[in-house]
Amino acid sequence: MIRVLVVDDSALVRRLVTTSLTLDTEIEVAGVATNGREAIGLVEELEPDAVTLDIEMPILDGLGALDEIRKRHPHLPIIMFSTLTEKGATKTLEALSLGASDFVTKPSNTTSMAESMASVREQLIPKVKALVGARRIVGPGREKPAPPPAPVKLAEPSSTPPEVLLIGCSTGGPDALSRVLEGLPGTLPVPVLVVQHMPPLFTTMFAERLDRVSPLTVREAAEGDVPRAGEVLVAPGGFHLRVKRSAGVVRAHLDEGPQENFCRPAVDALFRSAVEAYGGAATALILTGMGSDGLIGCRLLAEAGARIVVQDEPTSVVWGMPGAVATAGLAHEVLALDDIAGKLTAYLAG
């Protein structure tokens, strides 16, 4: 059983979360707390496998509790509960920078109890299972990660000079992406296109945060943008980001098409379009994330001659997305997070 500590000052939200979790036969609620100070004590007493943590609470808020828990339990999965507001997005991104594993958004006040419970279950349960499963593989005192799969005979990447860097990520992606973009030079000779699984508004704030830490110019993508060298375009929440070449010029296009891999934006949507726009003149990077979004796109890109790089298991929060690509034998390189920026810089310089 996966034992979860639920922390929220709202009795209604605590009931919503605990009921949603206990409907799953593999999860039990280890305890509940009404503020951050109480949560810190219960983490020590109950030793849960995961924690759901509200941000706005009395006595000690979620950020303060997160900071204290992380000092003592660096690998404990902690999932923040956030509101879909500008303030909520800002606080959530701060929590992720402080070491939160992931976040879910609270249902709006206009939804019914049944709808709210369905929303929580859909968002929260897969993340709890993925994060706890990853910790049981790579956490301290746990079994060691499996060695990377033996690569199949991949065709060498095309010798065509690279024209774009494509990046896909999800759970754990905000921190991983920040570290990669911090390590890339401002003189990068190609544009960077990013899909990070995030809801609307959050991607706007996320792009602004990345712009402050990266030598590159980072902003949320807009319809008709022309990707330019030294610039990073982040797919906006709620929209697929695709690219299309017309009259020799590549432009970004946004659409609200059906979700892919339960996501919009989806990595596969961007990568598929990049095959048509760039062919083998692309380098694709898959960072930490749950699920397998990006697998189909990486297969098509590899067949076109693009170079495929994935983050390794020990440095991934969840080795779902990169693991799917590596296990399928589609990765030209499987790299530790801190090695990625240097290798990409060399590749993209030709």
Rank of each mutant, 00 (worst) to 15 (best):
S116I: 14
D24C: 14
L154G: 04
T283C: 13
V334L: 03
L63N: 09
T160W: 00
A89T: 11
G36R: 13
A326T: 03
T83N: 14
K244S: 08
P174M: 03
T288A: 00
L344R: 06
G280L: 02
T105Y: 08
A306I: 11
F81T: 15
V7I: 12
T25I: 03
A229D: 01
L12Q: 04
A266K: 04
A324Y: 00
V51G: 05
P227C: 05
F81A: 15
E313C: 11
K71Q: 12
G279H: 12
E122L: 13
I125F: 03
G133A: 15
I296P: 00
L166R: 02
E47G: 02
P191S: 11
P48D: 03
A65G: 04
G62Y: 10
E333L: 06
T19W: 01
L216C: 04
T22S: 14
R307Q: 09
V218R: 01
R3F: 07
I59Q: 14
D255K: 09
S159W: 00
V190I: 04
P185R: 05
S82D: 09
R272Y: 13
V7S: 07
S170I: 01
G186D: 01
V234Q: 02
G320A: 12
P314I: 07
E68Q: 15
P265Y: 08
L166P: 10
L301C: 06
K91S: 15
T83D: 10
P145S: 03
L295E: 00
V243K: 08
I69R: 05
K153E: 02
V180G: 09
I2C: 04
G320F: 01
T25D: 14
